[in-house]
Design a protein around this nucleic acid. Structure first.
Lengths: 230, 230
DNA sequence: ACTACCATACTACCATACAAGTATGGTAGT
DNA sequence: ACTACCATACTTGTATGGTAGTATGGTAGT
C-alpha cells in the first residue's frame, strides 16, 4: 500500500484547533477572554483531550496563555510583538520579491497575471471579500514562483500577530485601487527583472499594512498587554 | 496575590518535550527513527498524556512526523526547508544588524564588548564548547540591543531546521579566528554606525553557516527526505 | 462594619481505559 | 511453492476519573 499521508479525514483535534483559531483571529473571542478546557469540550461535545491538545498548539503560537491550575485566557495583543512581526514580514517579503525579480517560473507568472485580471474584476464588482483572498493569493504565488513555499508558511505564522490589530482597525478603509496599482507594479518588476522597482514597491506596499498601534491601544486598552516593567 | 507567572516549577510535559527536542537536534535520535508514545512514556516513567502533548508540539515544529494509527518518526531533513531557513536567517539577521547600526542601547554595547573579550580568551584556551555558546550569545545581544527580542525567538525556531545539517557536518572544522574577526567587525560597525559595513560583514558571516547540502545528502541519504514528486 | 479564616467550586495536569485503524506473521487452501 | 485470508499485536485518537493547586464567597470572630 502506498503511503497516503492525508488518510485521516480530519481529527477532532484539528476541528477544535481551527475553529478556536478562527474565532480568536476574528476577535469573536476577544483578547483576555477566559476559556476553560471543560467549557470548550462541552461546546464542541467532545472530550477534554482533543481540546487540551488544541490549547497546546494555540499556546505555542502565542494565541493562548495557559496558567496552570488558574485558567487559560486568549492572549492579549503584544504591541512589541506586532511591531516586530511587521518588521520581519517587510524584510522577508522584500527579500523574496528581489529573488522573484531575478528568476521566476514561467507558469507562475501566468498565474500572477490571471490573478491581477481577477482583481480588476473584483474592484469593478466591489467584491471586497474576494479581493481580500486574491490579495493573499497574489503574494502566495510570488513565493511559490521562486521556490519559497516554506518562507510563505513562516510568514503566515508571523502574520497571526498582525491580524488581530488589522481586524481592530476595520478593513473597510482600504484603497483597493491603490492596492491593485502596486500589485501591477510588482508583476511588472518580476516580468522585467527590475529588482530595484520590485524592492521599492514592496516596501511601499508593506507600509500600507501598518496599523496605528498607539491609536488602537488608546481605543482598546483592555485588549493590549501593558508593559510597566523595565 | 500577584500574578507569578512561573509558579509551576516545571511540568512533566516540558521535561519530556525538552529532552526529546535535545535528542533530536543532537542526532541522538537520527532522522527517520521510529518512536511511539508508549515507548517514550515507559522510558520517562510517565503516562502517555504528557508524551502525546510533547509530540504535538514537536510535530508543529516539524521535528516529528505523526501518521495516525501507523506510527511516529523523527522527521527526515528537508533540504528545501534547510535552504529556505538559511535564506530567512540571512535576511532577518542582516535587517537587524542594519537596525543595530542605526541605533543601539549603550549597555548592550558594553555586553557585546565583554562577550568579544571572552571569545578571545576561549580561542586561546581552545574552549570551543564555550566559544559556541558565546557565538550564540553575541548574536542574541545584538537583537536585544535594538529591541528585536521576538525576532530572535523566531530565528531560533527557524534555526532548528539548520541545526541538524550543521551537526552532520561536524563542527570541528570551524575557523574560530575568522569567526572572531567577523564578530569584531560587526561590533565595530554598530559602534561607528557603519550600516554598510555591518550588512556586508553579516552577509559574509552568514555564508559561513552554509553546510554543503549536496555533499551531506550523498553521504547520509537515509537522513534526507527524497522528493521524486514534481 | 471589618477582617481572618475556611469550605467549596473551580482550574489545568496527569494517569488510565477504551476505540479504531494498520502492519505483520502464520495458516489454510489451492 | 504460492496466494488469500485472518488473528493478533501493534499504532495513534478519544474519553474519563482522580489529583493538586488556586480563586472566591460566605461566615465566625472581633
Amino acid at each position: 500500500m502506498e503511503y497516503t499521508i492525508g488518510t485521516q479525514a480530519v481529527s477532532t483535534r484539528d476541528i477544535v484547533y481551527r475553529s478556536l483559531k478562527n474565532q480568536i483571529l476574528l476577535l469573536e473571542l476577544p483578547p483576555g477572554t477566559g476559556i476553560s478546557e471543560k467549557e470548550i469540550s462541552l461546546k464542541f461535545n467532545v472530550s477534554r483531550t482533543p481540546v487540551r491538545e488544541s490549547f497546546v498548539r494555540l499556546a505555542q503560537e502565542g494565541l493562548l496563555a495557559v496558567y496552570p491550575q488558574r485558567g487559560t485566557v486568549v492572549s492579549l495583543i503584544d504591541s512589541e510583538l506586532v511591531e516586530e512581526a511587521r518588521f520581519m514580514r517587510e524584510h522577508l517579503e522584500r527579500a523574496v520579491i528581489r529573488e522573484a525579480c531575478r528568476s521566476f517560473q514561467a507558469r507562475n507568472l501566468i498565474d500572477l497575471k490571471a490573478n491581477l485580471d481577477k482583481q480588476k474584476l473584483c474592484i469593478e464588482d466591489q467584491d471586497y471579500k474576494e479581493m481580500f483572498m486574491l490579495d493573499e493569493e497574489f503574494h502566495h504565488v510570488i513565493f511559490t514562483g521562486c521556490n519559497k513555499k516554506n518562507t510563505w508558511e513562516v510568514i503566515q505564522q508571523i502574520k497571526v500577530h498582525l491580524n488581530r490589530s488589522r481586524m481592530l482597525k476595520l478593513t473597510a478603509d482600504h484603497n483597493w485601487e491603490h492596492l491593485y496599482q502596486q500589485h501591477y507594479c510588482l508583476y511588472e518588476a518580476i516580468e522585467q527583472h527590475n529588482i530595484n522597482q520590485g524592492d521599492q514597491i514592496m516596501q511601499e506596499h508593506m507600509a500600507l499594512t501598518i496599523a496605528d498601534q498607539e491609536m488602537l491601544m488608546a481605543k482598546y486598552p483592555q485588549y493590549y498587554k501593558q508593559r510597566p516593567e523595565n
